[in-house]
Amino acid sequence: MVRHNGKTQKDKFYACTPKGKNYEVVNPLGEKVKVKGKSLSVTIVNEPGNFTYLIYKKKKYQLEILEKNQNKYTVMINGVWYNFSIETPISYKRMKTLSKTQVLSRVEKITAPMPGKILDIMVEEGSQIKEGEALFILEAMKMQNEIVSNVSGKLGKINFRQNDNVMKDDIILEIERA
């Protein structure tokens, strides 16, 4: 006995950008691809060990998947990259539902944007941070980079000390949102 109420559509997807824009893609693998309701005629050239590109309206677009993790993609096209999460109609609905009910995480994690060495930490644990305030200086590629806070709040833990070497995406410190 097969019983189910759920209807999954295997040919309709949404590529969503972090800014909330979304592209509805219908039948991506088939002959008649539709993006945002308009049919799309492209040729994808994807040979291993060579450039990947697609031909659209007689123009070539260089493509590269920079990162993919589960349904999250970073795709570079002609040198410009975009982030997408690929959603099905169901997960798309879930995303909308949850974004309404869930608030932003209280703790903002400040990570190292690149590998380097921490030259100086200008803030102390427990201090109040204003958005735009300089937090620490990271030296990478022989340049000193001032890392500023993108939120206001109270500074929690600092995970590194001066002169520590850090890798990209290491969590340097955490700020509790005000």
Binding site: R3, H4, N5, G6, T8, K93, R94, T97, L98, T101
Partner: peptide, 15 residues
């Protein structure tokens, strides 16, 4: 279930 951001048990099985 959908309102909780979840699928029903049957939908899950189906997927």
């Amino acid at each position: 279930q959908h309102a909780r951001g979840k699928l029903s048990a049957r939908e899950r099985i189906h997927i």
